[in-house]
Amino acid sequence: MSGIWIIAKMSLLENSRKQVFHVLCLLMLAVIGSSTLLTIFTEGVQIKILKDLCMTCILFGGAALAIALGATGIPNDVESRTIHPLIARPITRTQYVVGKYIGTLITVALGVAAMTAAFAVLIYGYQHSFDSFLGIAILFTLLEVAVVAAIATTISAFVSPAIATVVTFMAYLAGTIKIGYIGGLIERSQSGVSKAIYSLIYHALPNLESFNFKTSLVHHDVVPASYLWQVAIYGLCYIAFVLVVGASYFSSREV
C-alpha cells in the first residue's frame, strides 16, 4: 500500500505544478465569479441560474482537469523514462497505475474544492445560508469526475496522451447523453450488427448523467437515499473495473 501512496504523492506534486491545472482552475473561478453579473434577472431566478451555472462550471472544470491530467501522467513518465527508476523498485505495475490515478484524483479534488469554495461563498452572499443538498451534489460531481479520471488513466496506459485525451473526452460526452441518445440509436437501428455495436458501446460507457444532481440542488427536489447509494456503489465499481483493466494491460506492457 505504501508504494501506492508514494506514487500518488509524487503524482500530486507533479500535477499541481502543471500549467494546465492553474489555467483551468483560474478559468473556472473567473466564470463562477462572473456569474454575479447576471443582475438582469430577479433575485430568485438569479440564484437558480447562478447555482446551475456554477455547478456546470465545477463539473466541466473537474472533468477537464481529470482528462488533461489523467491522460498525460503515465505516457509522459514512459516517454521521459522517469518511470524506469520507479518500477525498478519493489512495486507492481498495478500499484504504479493506481498511485498515478489517486494522485491525479487528489489534484482534481483540490481544483473542485477551490471552485466549490468560491461557489459556496457566492451562494452564502445571496441566500445567507447553505443548501443542505450542496455537499451531496458536490460529492457526486466529484464521483463523476473520478470516473472520468479513471477512464483517462486507463486509456493512457494503452495509447499516446493526445489520443487518450480525445478518446476520454468523447467517452465523457457520450456517457453524459448515453441513455437518451445512444439508447435511441439502439431502438432505431434496423440491422442486427449495428444494434449489437451500439449495445456494446451503450453498456461499456459509464452512465455519467446518474451523478448529476444539479437540478435537485437548484429546484430543491428530493432524491431517494436508495438511489444515491446505488449511484455511489455503481461509481466505485466502475472506477475499480476500469482501473483493473488498465493495470492488467500495463502489467504486461514493455517499457
Binding site: 508514494i6 507533479e14 523514462r81 527508476p85
Partner: peptide
C-alpha cells in the same frame, strides 16, 4: 538500479528523490 542517463521529475529536489526511493525500497 541506476539507469543509463537517469531521468527524474525536474521539479523534485535530490533529497526528495532519494527519500522517495528510500521509502519505495
Amino acid at each position: 538500479y541506476l539507469p543509463e542517463q537517469p531521468y527524474f521529475h525536474k521539479f523534485l529536489r535530490p533529497v526528495e528523490v532519494v527519500c522517495m526511493h528510500a521509502a519505495l525500497a
